[in-house]
Amino acid sequence: MKCWNCETDTSGSPFCPTCGKIAERPAGTSHFAIFDLPLAYDVDVPALEKQFRELSLRLHPDRFAQAEAKERRLSLEQTTALNEAYKTLREPTRRAFYLLKMYGVDLEREDTGTQKDMPFEFLEEVLDLRESLEDAMAAKDLEQARKMATDVEARRKAALTEAVDMLRSLERSPSDEAAVKKASHALGRVRYFTRFLEQVEAFEEEALS
């Protein structure tokens, strides 16, 4: 990407290395690239936070209040992208989902696909779990719901660990389709378990209020 002001190649940095003007980012810059990080699961979160604070200060729209329109706009754009990237990368689950998307499987999208289709047995199990929770809720049995939540939480953690293992192995062999599918299924399980836990939480709030 060339600097809009002096035409130097900014090579993706937030400011032009030559004239120091705030730079444009190519469309589709990844969250990892914003922090100059490799596409990898393991992130040093305290270092990320430090980098985030420094960049936030330098890119803050307040600093560009008197600048020309183009710079004001870029400061706003970069700040928005920076916040989104930080929010995603600092949190392990969000980071894992994002990384999977980089490998071509976007679990946020509604279309189904062979990579995403969960095994029938698993969906059956989720349905059973949700039915049991429904029974516990109808009986106002908070104890039982909490017991189920403890079990599901352990399984959610195990599924996330499995997904992370797969994502780490993909860093070494990025075109391993079987690993992408395994990571996708493991994160799919994380999603269904998280949904279950949200339901328990809502029930707890209702029961305690």
């Binding site: 969906l123 989720v126 799919g188 279950f196």
Partner: peptide, 13 residues
């Protein structure tokens, strides 16, 4: 038929 929505974690039978 048993289907799930990976985007939200809901299930339908």
């Amino acid at each position: 038929g048993l289907v799930g929505a990976p985007a939200c974690g809901d299930v339908m039978r």
